[in-house]
Structure formats: structure tokens, C-alpha cells
Design a protein around this nucleic acid. Structure first.
Lengths: 111, 111
DNA sequence: TATATATTTCGATTAATGTTGAAATATGGA
DNA sequence: TCCATATTTCAACATTAATCGAAATATATA
């Protein structure tokens, strides 16, 4: 992941509505949620939500797929993990052994 | 970490100059760097850098301490790790075992 | 085809953010 | 004390982001 990509991804999550949307999608898992369900759950106007979903999509953090007349959004775990990897890279300068380990988000390949 | 804190921390890093500053401080380690050295290294105007350092400080991502006529800034690894923990929390819904592990940043307690 | 539902785009408005020169503040050394 | 260096604050400006009603687009069903 490049610096610019990281900035875009961080900016996408650096907003209360979008962070809430993203976390809801993380909980929902690979099946995802329709735009309408997200709008209801978070009480956000459809046009506003659409704007934020596009931001998350532009950042590569979510993926959209058509399902009938609904559009289902799901979290892009691979991108999420790439960002976390970027943020932790170059940390510790080799003394990584002493650092506390943490779990990343589930990759889609096992869902 | 609360939602609001996460948004503030993410917003602090969601800017090219600030992300560069923060990463430089992560590499520099607990000793930190003076504002002037950072300004030189990144070719940023002093006033601009001061503005960004204040943002990072407000987000709890860096700490400042006076050293003679210099002000030394260092990364706040604890806050960094809290943010990563927040972003990975509620991920996977219990299936954490299958997730790829990643190292967090070195906590200050062993530096 | 016509109608209803779901989502996005558009336009306008408001608010927040990033940048920098110049002035103010703080510290160290002559 | 006086001067030089380091950093921050201030003020002004330009840019970007967030919100939402209304209109446009897409899909499903009668």
C-alpha cells in the first residue's frame, strides 16, 4: 500500500457516519447489507449515505454488488488489513518480537 | 477507545503531511525529534508543521516535551495500538482463530 | 407498459481544513 | 541585559467536505 492510498483509506474512516457504516459492514460479514438497511440502521438520509458509501468505495474499503433491486455493500477485509499492515510497518525497527500481537480482520477467503 | 476518539485519531493521520510526520516519529522511537528537525526532513514551513503537530497531539498520537530551546515530539505508541485495537475489534465475530496475526507497534515500556 | 421501490446524481448551502507570512512567545548564550 | 534561535499563535485566504431536497436512473412486479 502506498502513502496516498493510506491517506485516502484513513480519510474514509475519519468520519463518524462512515466509520459507523464500515463497522456495521464488518459485523455483517461478506454477505453485506443493502444501502437501505444501512440507512435505516444509522438513520441517515439516502442521499447522504450514498455519498459516504461512494467515499468508502473510492478508498477500496467496501465493495458493491447488485442483488435484484438492492445494492449490497460489504467490507473489503483485504484492504482493511493492508491498511493495518501499512500503519504497523517500520514500527519497532526490528524489535518486533517484544510487541504485542493483534488479530487482523477475517479475510474473505474463509467466510 | 471511543468512537469519537477513533475518528479524531484517524482524521489526524488522514493527511499526507501528518502521516509523514507520524511515521517519522515512529521510526525515530521514544527519543523523538525536534520540531525543527521534522520541518527540515519533510520540507514543511514551521507554522504549517506546528499546526499539524498540534493536530497529532490533540489526537493523542504524539507527545511533546521541552528539551532546552527545542521541543521534542515522540509517537504515542499506546494510543496507536489502542486505535488498531479499536479497528480490529468486533471483527470476525469469534472466528478470530482463522485471522492472520499482525504485530502492533512497540509500546514505550520496553524502549 | 405502467407503477412502485431502491439508489444515485445534481445543486446549493454551510462548515471545516490546510497553508503561509508576520508577529508573539520562550529559551539559551554572549 | 541584549541578541539569536526555536516554536507557536494569529489572521486571512483558498480549498475541500458534509448535508439534504429534488430530480434522475435502475430494477421488479402487476
Amino acid at each position: 500500500m502506498e502513502m496516498k492510498d493510506a491517506v485516502v483509506a484513513l480519510a474514509a474512516m475519519a468520519q463518524e457516519t462512515r466509520l459507523a457504516v464500515f463497522r456495521a459492514l464488518v459485523v455483517a460479514g461478506p454477505e453485506g447489507l443493502s444501502a437501505g438497511r444501512i440507512a435505516d440502521a444509522l438513520a441517515v438520509a439516502p442521499a447522504t449515505l450514498s455519498f459516504h458509501l461512494k467515499e468508502l468505495d473510492r478508498a477500496g474499503l467496501v465493495t458493491a454488488r447488485q442483488d435484484g433491486r438492492y445494492v449490497l455493500y460489504s467490507a473489503n477485509f483485504a484492504q482493511m488489513n493492508a491498511l493495518l499492515g501499512f500503519l504497523t510497518a517500520n514500527c519497532c525497527r526490528g524489535a518486533v518480537d517484544d510487541c504485542a500481537p493483534a488479530a487482523l480482520c477475517c479475510p474473505p477467503d474463509h467466510a
